[in-house]
């Protein structure tokens, strides 16, 4: 039975593709290693890991997120839950009149006020930071 050359050619092509993918795989592994090192050296990540390990062991406390992590896509009811804010705090502080509150994003609030998203975001962050830095009021409820 005559042997077709085509399967050999097919195998060669496949083997070359495998070799190329092998190089790509090595590159991706290298990139992952770099990212792992970057995460390992990140102070915030390390602090968070230590907090979590301690919280897991002692089952005490809750990590309060930093106001710097607030983004425009976040809703006000999420901010209330994440930062332990009273439900009307941000509404009063920022004079929010949109009836959708608290199911309103920071970005939508900026559009309501025809304000720049960045300045509104900074105002929200400042309001949250002000609450976090003030002493908690007695008998607060959520």
């Amino acid at each position: 039975m005559p042997h077709s050359r085509r399967p050999d050619q097919e195998r060669k092509i496949i083997d070359w593709i495998i070799a190329g993918l092998g190089i790509l795989l090595a590159l991706l592994l290298f990139v992952l290693l770099l990212q792992y090192e970057s995460l390992r050296q990140d102070e915030a990540i390390r602090a968070r890991t230590e907090w979590f390990v301690n919280a897991f062991r002692d089952r005490t406390g809750s990590a309060t997120a930093s106001a710097a992590t607030i983004q425009s896509w976040m809703t006000f009811d999420y901010l209330d839950r994440a930062f332990g804010l009273p439900q009307t705090y941000l509404q009063e502080r920022l004079a929010i009149t949109d009836p959708r509150y608290p199911k309103l994003t920071i970005g939508e609030f900026a559009e309501d006020n025809h304000a720049a998203a960045s300045s509104t975001l900074n105002a929200v962050r400042a309001a949250v930071e002000a609450y976090l830095s003030a002493p908690p009021s007695a008998a607060s409820s959520t």
Binding site: L39, I45, R48, F52, A65, A82
Partner: peptide, 14 residues
């Protein structure tokens, strides 16, 4: 990792 979740998005994709 809580609010730092976005730091893990790219490594996860890689």
């Amino acid at each position: 990792f809580g609010s730092y979740w976005s730091n893990f998005s790219l490594p996860f994709d890689v």
